[in-house]
Design a protein around this nucleic acid. Structure first.
Lengths: 154, 154
DNA sequence: CAGCAAACTTGCGTTATGCAAGTACTTTCA
DNA sequence: TGAAAGTACTTGCATAACGCAAGTTTGCTG
């Protein structure tokens, strides 16, 4: 299946076709906020994603251009994933999820404190954070080319 | 299962535990933008949700306090669903999905035009629209009490 | 009271998920 | 240099969720 059949032309529906499940955005979260970059690090997250599901989601995110992978120059057996611009652009969405959860779900005081500063200058925070993520991404691409796309479109 | 087991305390994870699937946010969309209020109207949406899935999601949304249902005073055999404040608070999130999709997915020109005006005053749009939705909700609650909660917690 | 409509429920086949184990390729180190 | 360990997956199989078609229930309508 080159591209899963789209259910409708609605932007929400199309978006959910991509990341509308219980795992995909958690990988994005890990890439954004947890400094996680490798398969093993994603596996170590509290939610406990299964290995096959993780592999499937990473492939989907790559196929959709939301993440990219480069081989670790220091260790050829490890793969480093990072967000593309399309992935970084999910930041506002992820933040709004946080803000909704903060208002309506039992969220820890620590996270509440962080969100307080976010809310004081949402636009500024997004810009700064996105810039940082894009810069990270740029550096990784500079160091190495994509390792996984050795033949054909995967 | 009174409340599905939470995977972690992360706000993103908890939120996805509630509406992290391919259907739930489409119901919210229909309630917000499409003027749909009944089971039959949700069924008629382009994506073609199955009847059992729709019933399950409506129950979940109600259990989570995101929607409420009142019986139609004019026709006791029809049920009218509407967003609670917790549901209306999903508006910023839904808008950010739209904006991401507009930038990265093939979205119709008509929707792009609408989003242009949204972007010109995002905060104002959210306030106005949320006020309208909350007012709608208030009126429905005034007319009737909840019909479905006739005995115990459903 | 017959017929119809609206809102679900049920049964069952298909697909996706979750768990445990296994494979392939590096890297490390005695 | 070769055995052990690390990293990134794949595979097989049981369980759960989904999707479709049909049936049930309740209220309205003529």
């Amino acid at each position: 299946m080159t591209s899963a059949s789209r259910r409708s032309d609605c932007p929400i529906s199309m978006s959910l076709d991509i990341w509308g499940d219980k795992w995909t955005l958690l990988i994005v979260r890990d890439l954004m906020f947890e400094g996680k970059k490798t398969y093993g690090q994603f596996l170590s997250s509290d939610e406990g994603i299964a290995t096959n599901i993780l592999a499937a989601r990473l492939k989907l995110l790559k196929d959709q251009g939301i993440i990219r992978s480069v081989s670790n120059p220091a260790n050829r057996s490890s793969v480093i994933y990072h967000l593309t611009e399309k992935g970084v652009d999910l930041l506002p969405l992820i933040l709004e999820i946080h803000l909704w959860a903060e208002k309506h779900l039992p969220v820890s005081d620590e996270i509440r404190r962080t969100l307080k500063t976010v809310k004081s200058d949402k636009t500024g925070f997004i810009q700064n954070f996105a810039d940082r993520l894009n810069e990270e991404s740029r550096q990784l691409n500079q160091e190495t080319a994509s390792p996984t796309t050795s033949s054909g479109e995967n």
